[in-house]
Nucleic acid binder design. Sequence first.
DNA 1: TTTATTGTATTATTTAGATAGTACAATAGT
DNA 2: ACTATTGTACTATCTAAATAATACAATAAA
Lengths: 123, 123
Amino acid sequence: MPWNLDSDRPIFLQIIEKIQMDIVAGVYHPGDKLPSVRELAQAAAVNPNTMQKALAELERTGLVYSQRTSGRFITEDTAMIQELKSELARELIAEFLEHMQKLGFEEQETIDLMEKTIRGETK
Amino acid sequence: MPWNLDSDRPIFLQIIEKIQMDIVAGVYHPGDKLPSVRELAQAAAVNPNTMQKALAELERTGLVYSQRTSGRFITEDTAMIQELKSELARELIAEFLEHMQKLGFEEQETIDLMEKTIRGETK
DNA sequence: TTTATTGTATTATTTAGATAGTACAATAGT
DNA sequence: ACTATTGTACTATCTAAATAATACAATAAA
């Protein structure tokens, strides 16, 4: 799967979010070994330093941990992962509703519009 | 109203989006005179050059136009404004659904969760 | 024991965005 | 005619992010 990074935001932030997504979505499982910094950097078409910076931050929050020379692993704390999933969903929803409101759509309007969108109506 | 700019994304992009929002939401009306570059820059606590850059882009897309020395004005093309509103809403919805999907929520799940959120349930 | 791979650290350079400061031409308002 | 305000342009500097190029210590694997 491509990493799909854009240049409108700091890359290391996008990497952090991407890996977080992959963890909570189950692409990576608790205890899984991550590819090495160099491999990940190459896969993302990014400088190893940038990847290292993102991983260091993920490590700071406890989502991953590293074992000197054997590699880097996803946390086995499934509760933490579940909590993160809820937290990210809450943030996305809040941010989305706020933006729509700034566009002039009330909450119920937004939901109606979304349902229409899902059902494939152009307008 | 505060401009609420963050440092995670280029400021001039955030300004463009903010003014777009204000236009489609009806904060500014067609034909309205905008404050001067210098005033807007001060209001946003931003360098005049940055504000100028954002306004130049809004002008390029036709949303605003400037009359040398009298000032800058919102377009009177109400159709264009309506179209922009729909376009922005479509983008927001698509982006939101995509992000939620990456988190592991299907479209119907997302809507259900949103409805719960709106009704004030913590979980 | 040797070798390759791991995470990690360091220094230098480049680039885009933002700021700072100044300047000028056009014109509305006086 | 004069003045202030307008958009606009230009150059220089600063900063954070990203890249580039190495280097080193620890250890799993051979």
